[in-house]
Design a protein around this nucleic acid. Structure first.
Lengths: 331, 331
DNA sequence: CTGAAAGCGCTTACAG
DNA sequence: CTGAAAGCGCTTACAG
C-alpha cells in the first residue's frame, strides 16, 4: 500500500495539485474554505509531502550537512547537541558527513555537494589552514553557505564561531603565575589541533611576559599512554603548575602526581580545559576553563540559517565568552 | 554558474542521458569505448549526480535515519561512531532525528517517513515498550526496515542488537557476593530506562539466590545532585558493596565513600557499567562492565543494510558479549 | 483565489 | 549496446 501523494489529496478534495501545494507552502493565498477542506483530506489520507520530491522541485532540501572527524569526542557530541536543537527549531534536518583524517577532504566535499544540502557546518579542528581554504573555495564555488565551528582562523572572511583559546590559555596561565607558581608546564597533544596551537600560544605569551620559561610537554590523547609518559616526568622535572589542554590529560597527570607524593594544590596546581563532567569526578575537583561547546554548536547553526536565508549578519566571525571555573586543584 | 547535469554530460559526450546514467549505475552494460568517453566528460565537467533527483527517480535515497534522544550521552555518541563507520563502507548517508522525551514519538516518525529514508536505526533506550511498538507498527506499515540498538525487548519479532544487561548485572553482583560482600547496593537512576530495569532485575536475581536483601538506591544522573544524596547515605546505612548503573554514578559514590573514611576496596567494593574513560581516571581505577557500544552501533547498521537489501538474516535479534574489566575498586 | 503546464535531474522499462 | 519516452512527486511562474 503506497503512500498518498499530492495527486490523491487533490483528487479527493476536488482541487488541483497546485492548490494543495499552496495550502502547504503559502496557506494565506488560499481561500479559508478551500484550505480547510484540503487540510481535512490531508489528515484523512495521512498525507505527508515527499521531502525528496520537494527538494528536487524547489531546489531546497532543508538539510544541513555537518562535517566532523570524530563524533565520539565529548566536545563534538556536545556541539552536535546544540546544532540539533537549533536545527529542529528552524525545521532543518541534519546529515552527518564523517571525515577520516587520512582521507582527502575533497572526497567528503564531493559527497556534500552531490547531496544538495542547503548549508554546511564544519566542526573539524583537525583541519589544516590549507584544508580550510579548500573547503571554503569548494563550497563558495557551489554557492553553499557554510560556517566553521570551534576552529581557529586568522582569515576574517571565514564565517565562524569559536572561543578565544589563546586568550583563555593566557588567562589560565596568568592566574597560576599570580599564585606564585614558577615552573608551569603546558600538557598538550602530540597530534596537531588548530585550537591547541592557540592554547600553546596563549600559554607561551603569559610565561614570556612573566619572564618564565615556557615548557610544553606533548603526549597522546590516550589515557594509558599518558600514564607511562607522566611517570617518567616526576623523576627529573621541577614543576609546581600544570595546565592540560583537555580535562582528561590534566586529571591523569594530577593522579600520577599524587601517587608520586605531591599534594594538590600545595605542591602542584593543576587546571584543565573544557570543564567536562570529568572535572567534578576527580579528586580534588579540577579547576577548568569552561568552553561553551553547546553554544558554539547552537550559535553556528543559527548563523548558518541566516546565511542560508541571505539575511544580513552584523558579523561573520563570532567569539563566545569563556570562564575559568575555579575548583580545588588550584588555589 | 550552475552545476553540470546529466544532460550536459550527454551533450558533450554525444550520447543520450540514458547512457550516462548507465555508465554510473550499470557500467557493464555500456561498451568500453563509450563508457570511457563518458567518464572523461564527467571528469572534465566535474559532474556529480544530483542525489535528490536520483532519490526521486529510483525511490532509494541511500540514507538511513537514526533516532536518538540525547546525542551528548557518551554511549550514544559511541554507537553513532560505529554506525557512521559502517554506513560509510556501504555508502549510506546518515540523517539524525533527535527526539525530545516530552514530544510525541509519532511526531518524529512523521518526519522520518516524509524524508524517505531507506531504513531506520532507533537507539533510544528511553522508549517505553508501548512506544517501541508504535515505532515498529508505523515503520512496518510504511515498509521501512528498522533495527533497534541497545534496547531491551521481550518481543523476538523486533530486529535488535544489544547486550544481555540482566545477565551482566547478575554476573557483576555474583562476583561481589563471591568476595563475601553482604550489603551490596545497586545505584540506579530515578528516571526509568529500559536497560536499567534489566540491570536491576539481574542484580535482584543474584541477591535473592544468595538470600541477601536486594537494595536499590535511585538517584538522578546529575553528579552534583548525587553528591548530596550520597552524603546522606553514609550516615545511616550499612554497606560493603555498590554497583552503579553508570561509571559516573559509581565514581561519585566511591569518592564520597572515601571522604567518609571508607577504604576501597577493603571496606567497600565498587563497580560500574560501561567501562568509559572515567573508569581509568578515578582513584582507585574502577572495575566496570564493558559494554561494546561501538559494536552495537556497527552491528545494527550492518544488520540494517541486510534488511534494506532484503537479504536473508539468520537472526533478527543479536546479543553481543560483555566482559567484566577488573580494576582496583574491587578485590 | 485557482488551475494547467512546465520543469527540477534523474532512472527505468521498452524498443530497436 | 543505445536511445526515446515516461515517470518519480513535488513547486512555481503564468494565466485567468
Amino acid at each position: 500500500m503506497r503512500n498518498a501523494t499530492i495527486y490523491d489529496v487533490a483528487g479527493v478534495a476536488g482541487v488541483s495539485l497546485a492548490t494543495v501545494s499552496r495550502v502547504l507552502n503559502n496557506p494565506e493565498k488560499v481561500k479559508t474554505e478551500t484550505r480547510e477542506r484540503v487540510l481535512k483530506v490531508i489528515k484523512e489520507l495521512g498525507y505527508r509531502p515527499n521531502v525528496i520530491a520537494r527538494g528536487l522541485a524547489s531546489r531546497k532540501t532543508t538539510t544541513v550537512g555537518v562535517v566532523i572527524s570524530d563524533i565520539t569526542r565529548a566536545s563534538v557530541a556536545e556541539m552536535l547537541g546544540g546544532i540539533l536543537d537549533i536545527a529542529k527549531k528552524y525545521n532543518y534536518s541534519i546529515k552527518i558527513f564523517p571525515f577520516d583524517e587520512e582521507e582527502d577532504v575533497m572526497d567528503a566535499l564531493y559527497n556534500i555537494v552531490a547531496e544538495q544540502v542547503d548549508g554546511v557546518l564544519c566542526l573539524d579542528d583537525e583541519l589544516s589552514t590549507k584544508q580550510m581554504d579548500d573547503v571554503k573555495r569548494t563550497l563558495e564555488s557551489n554557492n553553499i553557505p557554510f560556517v566553521f565551528g570551534n576552529v581557529y582562523s586568522s582569515n576574517p572572511e571565514i564565517p565562524l564561531v569559536t572561543v578565544d583559546y589563546e586568550r583563555a590559555a593566557y588567562e589560565l596561565t596568568k592566574a597560576m603565575i599570580k599564585d606564585n607558581r614558577k615552573n608551569i608546564y603546558l600538557l598538550s597533544t602530540a597530534r596537531k589541533y588548530m585550537v591547541n596551537d592557540q592554547k600553546e600560544a596563549g600559554y607561551t605569551k603569559a610565561m614570556k611576559e612573566a619572564r618564565l620559561e615556557a615548557k610544553i610537554f606533548r603526549t597522546s590523547g590516550d589515557v594509558s599512554i599518558n600514564m607511562a609518559h607522566f611517570e617518567e616526568f616526576f623523576k627529573d622535572k621541577k614543576i609546581d603548575g600544570a595546565i592540560g589542554v583537555r580535562d582528561s590529560i590534566a586529571i591523569s597527570f594530577m593522579n600520577i602526581a599524587q601517587e608520586n607524593g605531591l599534594s594538590i594544590p600545595r605542591d602542584l596546581a593543576v587546571a584543565g580545559f573544557q570543564n567536562t563532567k570529568y572535572s567534578v569526578l576527580s579528586r580534588p575537583n579540577l579547576t577548568s576553563l569552561d568552553i561553551p561547546v553547546y553554544d558554539i554548536g547552537a550559535v553556528s547553526m543559527r548563523l548558518l540559517t541566516k546565511l542560508m536565508n541571505q539575511e544580513e549578519v552584523d558579523s561573520q566571525s563570532i567569539v563566545l565568552p569563556h570562564h575559568i571555573i575555579k575548583r580545588n586543584s588550584t588555589n
